[in-house]
């Protein structure tokens, strides 16, 4: 079914190819427009006034960008700036911890021989697909009993055990980290921990960078667990604020400000993505495992 456009009968090869390319570019461009359309609406409506937005859709930007921005920042119920800061802290530290310890775990499996190695490796692969939600009940209650409700620790520290990141690192090491390097470092008298920190992590830089981005984005977008743990207004992350905007009496809101709030939540990530996109897309193909 995917190929009716391909079956173009008996024509001269070049003409047939031209038709296929025109059809291809047309369909691809339509999908590119569909994919970008929501963001275009977002960008335009961020600059418009509520009344204008309600009147109808327009492709012409308005002049309310800064006013909407001020309205969002001034909303003491949303505390957008504070939430932005919280999201940055949590996602940044999560990316750091997760990539470092995943690399260390993968290094352990890649370089050393020990009795439980095979078992532990298989075990990590098996837990890779277990959804976090199934242990959410025990997790939330345990954090409450440790007085960690409204703390960022339960959102950051557990990322030390990230099976998908580990798996990516392991695959990368298989192709880019020959054991001879480690051997040579030993002969030079380097300690095992120092070898990892000073010799191995620079080699792993591309993998660490790709996974740091993925982990950051995942943490930035995380909604389920933070919403169960953080109920202090000052501790909220961005997705929680989005949830609050939606749950409140929607009709009463300044729509320009709602679009602005959505924009603040997604534009930083979108910009980082566009800058690093080549890198990221290569990373997805390499990993072939969803984070």
């Amino acid at each position: 079914m995917a190929a009716p456009v391909d079956a173009v009968g008996e024509m001269s090869n070049s003409k047939q190819l031209l038709i296929r390319r025109v059809v291809g570019y047309t369909v691809l461009t339509i999908f590119a427009v569909i994919s970008l359309f929501p963001f275009l609406i977002l960008l335009i409506n961020m600059t418009r006034e509520t009344n204008d937005i309600q009147k109808g859709f327009s492709l012409i930007p308005g002049t309310y960008l800064f006013k909407n921005f001020k309205t969002v920042l001034g909303n003491h119920d949303w505390k957008m700036l504070n939430s932005l800061k919280n999201s940055l802290i949590i996602s940044g530290l999560t990316a750091l911890l997760s990539t470092y310890f995943s690399a260390l775990t993968a290094y352990s499996i890649h370089v050393y021989d020990f009795k439980l190695k095979k078992f532990l490796f298989t075990f990590i692969l098996m837990i890779m697909m277990v959804p976090t939600q199934v242990s959410a009940l025990g997790f939330v209650r345990q954090m409450a009993s440790w007085n960690l409700t409204n703390s960022f620790i339960p959102l950051i520290v557990p990322s030390i055990a990230a099976p998908a990141t580990f798996f990516f690192m392991k695959q990368y090491m298989d192709s880019a980290l020959p054991l001879e390097i480690v051997e040579a470092a030993r002969i030079d008298g380097s300690g095992e921990f120092r070898t990892f920190n000073e010799l191995v992590t620079p080699i792993l830089k591309p993998a660490i960078a790709v996974q740091a981005i993925f982990t950051f984005v995942q943490s930035w977008n995380n909604f389920f667990i933070p919403a169960l743990l953080l109920d202090d207004k000052n501790k909220r992350t961005l997705p929680i604020v989005i949830g609050i905007i939606r749950s409140a009496d929607y009709a009463s809101f300044d729509m320009g400000a709602v679009y602005m709030a959505i924009g603040i939540s997604i534009i930083p990530v979108a910009i980082v993505y566009l800058i690093l996109s080549k890198f990221i897309i290569r990373g997805i193909a390499l990993g072939a495992v969803k984070g």
Partner: peptide, 12 residues
């Protein structure tokens, strides 16, 4: 462009 929506916060 096709991959862009994947990095966007699902809630947003």
């Amino acid at each position: 462009i096709f991959y862009l929506p994947n990095v966007i916060m699902a809630a947003a």
